[in-house]
Design a protein around this nucleic acid. Sequence first.
DNA 1: TGACCGATGAAT
DNA 2: TTCATCGGTCAT
Length: 199
Amino acid sequence: MSGSNKKRKRSFFQQPAAWVAENLLGDYLVLKNGRGRLEGKIVETEAYVGVNDDASHSFGGKITPRNRIMYQAGGVIYIYLIYGRYWCFNIVTSPRHEPQAVFIRSLEPIEGLDVMKRNRRTNNLQQLTNGPGRWAQSFGIDKTFLGRNITGDAIFISPGASRNFSVVKTKRVGVAYAQRSQNWPLRFYIAGNPFVSKA
DNA sequence: TGACCGATGAAT
DNA sequence: TTCATCGGTCAT
């Protein structure tokens, strides 16, 4: 349901990434700023499950300036740039020192579509939020979101009203470089939803 | 300091 | 299917 200010709590995000990724489907991502309220329904996610996942930035326990936020307790935002052009938006999950994260891949636009279109410089509703770079651009996401709390007043997750959908589980997109984990079924999306990315 | 890269998107 | 693209990352 659109317009709710109910929030997922921090404890929700301190579960394992695969669980969080699946259970975020149907929830709403809400962003409030001076220009109003943007809201999108989460329809596609991926889990990056930590030190044993060679598709994850934290594989092998690696710590760099970029990924160190992943080692925080679940509930903070991990942002990084891909291909020199697109911001990728992740939510850190799991307890502290367990560097897992959920990558939000696609949203269904719910509220603030005029602002989203302006940010994306397009009137194409279908291509507004159906991919990680696209929705981030629609929402004005950039590196200033790094480390922010996903349970605050400015940006938060609102629980979905119903779960009358089936979930598709497949391998993740764009991780063919991973030797061991490339086929792990850690991509989740709402079956039949038109805003799931094509991949 | 700079070679290298990529959890993509858009065009074809 | 192909490829443009480029700021950031990280090893040096």
